[in-house]
Nucleic acid binder design. Structure first.
Lengths: 337, 337
DNA sequence: TTGAAAGCGCTAACAT
DNA sequence: ATGTTAGCGCTTTCAA
């Protein structure tokens, strides 16, 4: 049978739908509806288990209480952890999350924004990729709350939660230099986002600061579209071709994991004369023998800030104050193991 | 500025909104609207980038092209991987996924169903927990497509995608016995779902079949609400108290990971005289020294079946055929390392 | 071949 | 203090 509507409730209670609507929306007080009426209607609502149709409500009010989350890949542990935390907090504030992975495909990413728009999501949380600038700018000019995190697109004035990537890799590289490493390799991925480039910059700056010449041969670029096995193979090749390498810094955790597979395949010993640091921590690095050092991003803090920023913007969206941007850069931490 | 509506398009094209609507929905042919008209209207739509308001459409048609996904914890790699695959396929069929984690909290789970219902999701994909029977039954009686996966609730007639858990742990236990292990421990979690109980059954049956007496002391129950550290501590205690244990089977991958942390803490050697098998594979188990055997669930197959079942039910929902249930039990595979 | 108009369930301005 | 009613943007029946 069809679900009940506000009309049915009104009929059952012998009142108008307005009264029911006011009570539903907690405006009964303001409208000075009698306490008796309120109690009676609420009883009926509870009794029949009536829940207002959100779609109709959304059409009428223009908000859906839904936040769109766009990330590269929801199955990446970093994004999965953040998604979980965000979802949890959003839920407590009455918002639902609707998400999608871009798979680093610009067309899909653009499509997602359009799709979310047509579904009238109230706000966006985006780990953006290059090429989305225009789309995001459009959202902003419609005064839609948007918070980007993890990555930043240059020239975009938007609230953001970032981690200081330069500092992260700088610390890591520096720690390797201090330990006397001479040929430090850097393994990264070919996605064109500031965040990844910054990780390279940190590496570069640390070398410069220590007057070590940068050897382009020691910087390995892996294609994002590689399968896991392809990446492992490429890395094996890379380390075989460059036996002088005595330390590696990986720009992402999944690259580091592939690296560990390579080393295992090559039977390469990780010890005082061959050191590895990963970006983003992971249980694997704690359990590996030997344990692997990592640059750790503050996942909870990221999620916390992201959701706070969106909620704040969501709350101020219909006020007339000029929207202020919220920006924060968090620090990562080098965990030496 | 406000987004354009179908009215604006109609005005721009000097036609009625009906015509625009027919063209939008591919019904132009059937309504025999002239090709000229179609071309003209389509050109305008493209030019101004008009996208119909899905909320209004949903209110009118009753479908939202949205599927609700309810799992225990989206940040669990098993669920994250499945969510990603499901989301991807759903997207290709024009459906969006809206998800939420129950955190093994029945109230939250029930709330989620109600919330999804009020948002008019077209179908549900649920990894259920005990206590949801009634809510799911209600959905079914409203002819709403529902597919459960990973777990099954007894006495519920619903489409399902399961893995033979009994067989999984049976194989694992048996392989340990064949290797001459005498005191095989079983570490599991206190969530009351068939799937987890089945894993215990498989363990039990294998012991029985091999005429080994079941020693309740060797079966350790961990609370789901433990923090990671608490679990590690409890496990350390457990293995210290029961030094006769020469093999362990973990009922979930995250328990196995905690176990590995314990063993590391205890400096326990994993070798021929102490063997470990995990349920659900994970990169960690491949990289660990020594590598860890695992019962591997066919994640892709699970996702594939789940989405196919929902789509199938979704397609038949307004036909009058009696809805047929789709049920499949997939096999897991013991990966011996 | 196209258009007018009803109505999906709800909110809120306006009326009483 | 409570009711009437216009519309949110769209689909679809019926009429022309």
């Amino acid at each position: 049978m069809k679900p009940l509507s506000i009309k049915d409730i009104a009929k059952k209670a012998n009142v108008s739908i307005t009264t029911v609507s006011f009570i539903l929306n907690g405006k009964a007080e303001k409208m000075r509806i009698s306490q008796d009426m309120i109690t009676k209607v609420e009883a009926i609502i509870k009794e029949v288990g009536f829940r207002p149709n959100q779609v109709a409500r959304s059409l009428r009010t223009g908000n859906t209480n839904t936040i769109g989350l766009i990330v590269e890949d929801i199955s990446n542990p970093f994004f999965a952890a953040i998604a979980r935390l965000i979802e949890d907090k959003a839920y407590k504030h009455g918002y639902k999350i609707i998400y999608s992975s871009t798979e680093n495909n610009l067309d899909k990413a653009k499509g997602l924004i359009r799709m979310f728009k047509s579904r009238q999501v109230d706000g966006y949380i985006i780990a953006p990729m290059a090429g989305m600038e225009e789309d995001i700018r459009e959202l902003l000019s419609a005064r839609t709350p948007v918070v980007v995190f993890d990555r930043h697109l240059p020239g975009l004035e938007v609230s953001s939660v970032l981690v200081d990537n330069i500092k992260g890799t700088y610390m890591a590289t520096d720690s390797l230099i201090v330990k006397g490493m001479k040929n430090i390799a850097f393994v990264t991925v070919d996605v064109e986002v500031e965040q990844i480039k910054d990780r390279y910059k940190g590496y570069e700056q640390a070398l410069k600061a220590n007057k070590i010449e940068i050897n382009p041969k020691l910087c390995k670029l892996i294609s994002f579209n590689n399968t896991a096995d392809e990446t492992t193979a490429e890395l094996t090749q890379f380390f075989t071709d460059n036996p002088e390498i005595d330390a590696v810094l990986f720009a992402t955790n999944y690259l580091a994991v592939r690296g560990l597979f390579s080393f295992r395949e090559m039977n390469k010993k990780l010890n005082g004369s061959f050191k590895v640091i990963a970006y983003d921590d992971h249980d694997i690095f704690k359990l590996h023998s030997p344990t692997i050092s990592a640059v750790d991003q503050p996942i909870e803090e990221i999620a916390e800030n992201v959701i706070n920023f969106v909620l704040k913007e969501l709350a101020s969206v219909d006020s007339f104050e000029k929207k202020e941007l919220n920006n924060v850069v968090l620090s990562s931490r080098l965990i030496e193991r």
